[in-house]
Design a protein around this nucleic acid. Structure first.
Length: 528
RNA sequence: GUCGCUAUCGUCUAGAGGCCUAGGACAGAGGACUUUCAAUCCUCCAACCGGGGUUCGAAUCCCCGUAGCGACGCCA
């Protein structure tokens, strides 16, 4: 493998859900790997998460797979840099930490007293009245921690080139004590022997020969500290690390905001990707939409096949301003949860709410575009889980019938979930007629009479097929001197209980003669 | 508190000094088509944060404000 090979990684921590922001980070990494013929690596940063690690990892794996973002190396499939769990690499971090100490680049010391919190944070907490000295003392690790010696090396500022944002610089003073000489050393190994995020991250990126670090721009500040770590590692004697420490290219992606202009968060925003899945969005639409958050191909294409996104993708077409993930929130969320809930009832509530928020959004529009492009077989495959969830017994019907029913609603639905709902009338006869429909249709323009007469016409139809039924309806309307709508609407109300359905002859056809007559009879009992 | 980043229609965005009377898309309004709902098509509405420079010419370059966001821990 040549040293110029692109290797990128997505390194989530297993929190119990896959965040829509994480999906976008993963996507951009994946795109870059696919575009350059490089490798996409999945690494699980689980140094500090105690519970349900395996389950939480599986959730991430499932989410990424659903999105179609497949990795070349990772916890489930292994690879040359295994293991891909940080929790399984602890020994290695310790060895590197020791090597740094031995080389005089780091030292064990006990510096903080107040739970390791910096002064500015303590002051802030005090101002908010949230400061508890005793608690902080108790939480403080009594053991010494390993500090990295910060070496400014005479620099007046620390600089790196960001592939998205350009040059980013910080004054050296940020990392120096008041004297302007001594570096502000920082912890890389905790008192309990666990590595700090920045340390583990850099070691892993070196070990895994990561060439490009593509991540959210909330990591910009971390980058400077990480650079110090890279520089220290480079001073280690040869052989201390399997690969030569080389500072990767950094590409910091703009954040995704909510409608309030704040970083999207699980406390108040629907962030779990599974929520969007449950709303009946297609992964390809979700991915297309997320790709367009902060990136554009520079032409006027918006709905693009993945191949085109890969072809057009480049860092310099990524904006450095953050983008809003807009939903139409007409209603407040039912609960303050981003979808990490394990209660299926609560999740169902959130999904209903999210579905409402999705209405009229660009995401829903893109999804509709993709829905309409689905071929019949694919459509059936995708909608089926939603039908089962609604309790429709699909097995009673022929595959051809099911295909016809779904295709008829395909153009009328923007999500799989909507489609499953729109198709309800083909699985369940209405138990009552919408009062509004009765008033507007049946009680006007001789609606009831038309229905009664149509019942007779339909009972006499011998060839129960679309064209024949179309003719029957049209002839009847003509013979009575009525507009088509005056015949179709009463029928529609009788068959569906509502004023909305697919074209009337198709609806008649797919419902079958016996069922149609039964529903008309039922409707007549309701209004006569 | 300190540091950093950002600023174009309500939203996603195009824009690399003259192609800008600022383009596209979603949403919204109106209309056409129609058998309801969609889909489709047409029309409309709607933005360069403010102020200074530089320049023959600025949405674009520079400076200063302002605002927003982010980050700063023995969290990740």
């Amino acid at each position: 493998m040549s040293s110029s090979t692109v290797r990128v990684r997505f390194a989530p921590s297993p929190t119990g859900y896959l965040h829509v922001g994480g999906v976008r980070t993963a996507l951009f990494n994946w795109l870059y790997a696919r575009k350059t013929g490089g490798k996409f690596i999945l690494r699980i940063e689980d140094t500090d998460i105690q519970r349900n690690k395996e389950e939480a990892t599986q959730i991430i794996i499932n989410g990424l797979k659903w999105c179609g973002l497949h990795w070349d190396e990772g916890p489930d499939i292994g690879g040359p840099c295994a293991p891909y769990f940080q929790s399984q690499r602890m020994g290695h971090y310790k060895v590197v930490g020791d090597a740094l100490e031995k080389a005089g680049l780091a030292y064990w010391a006990k510096k903080d007293s107040a739970g390791g919190l910096p002064e500015w944070k303590i002051e802030k907490l005090k101002k908010q009245g949230k400061w508890d000295e005793e608690k902080a003392q108790a939480a403080a690790d009594p053991n010494p921690a390993l500090y990295l010696k910060v070496d400014l090396n005479g620099r007046s500022e620390v600089v790196f080139e960001d592939a998205v944002k350009g040059t980013i610089a910080k004054p050296a003073a940020t990392y120096q004590e008041e004297d302007g000489v001594t570096g502000k050393d920082f912890v890389i190994m905790r008192g309990n022997g666990m590595p700090v995020y920045n340390f583990a991250c850099v070691i892993d990126d070196v070990d895994m020969r990561i060439s490009h670090v593509i991540r959210g721009d909330d990591h910009v500040e971390n980058t400077f500290r990480q650079i110090f770590i890279y520089e220290a590692l480079a001073k280690l004697p040869e052989g201390a690390l399997p690969n030569a420490p080389k500072i990767p290219v950094f590409a910091h992606l703009p954040m995704i905001f909510n409608e309030e202009g704040k970083k999207i968060s699980k406390r108040r925003d629907p962030v779990a990707i599974t929520l969007y899945q449950a709303c009946g969005l297609l992964p390809e639409a979700m991915i297309n939409f997320e790709a367009l958050l902060g990136w554009s191909p520079g032409n006027e294409h918006e709905v693009m096949p993945m191949e085109e996104i890969i072809r057009e993708f480049s860092f310099d077409r990524i904006k450095s301003a953050s983008a809003q993930f807009t939903l139409n929130r007409k209603l407040p969320p039912p609960v303050a949860a981003g979808g990490a809930t394990t209660d299926p009832e609560v999740e169902a509530q959130i999904v209903e709410w999210l579905s409402e928020c999705l209405k009229g959004s660009k995401l829903e529009w893109i999804n509709g575009e993709y829905m309409r492009k689905l071929d019949a077989a694919e459509l059936v495959k995708r909608v089926e889980p939603f039908l089962l969830k609604k309790g429709y017994d699909v097995s009673h019907h022929s595959p051809a019938w099911l295909k016809n029913v779904l295709q008829m609603e395909q153009e009328r639905s923007k999500t799989l979930k909507q489609l499953a709902e729109n198709v309800a009338l083909f699985f369940n006869a209405p138990t009552k007629l919408e009062p509004k429909a009765v008033d507007k249709v049946l009680k006007k323009n001789d609606g009831i009479a038309v229905l009664q007469e149509m019942r007779g016409v339909l009972a006499g139809v011998e060839e129960w097929a679309g064209p024949a039924l179309d003719n029957a309806v049209k002839h009847f309307a003509e013979s009575k001197g009525k507009k088509l709508g005056d015949v179709a609407q009463p029928l529609r109300v009788a068959l569906s209980g509502t004023t909305v359905s697919p074209p009337i002859h198709d609806t008649l056809h797919l419902l079958g003669q016996a069922e149609c007559l039964r529903r008309i009879d039922f409707a007549l009992t309701q209004v006569c």
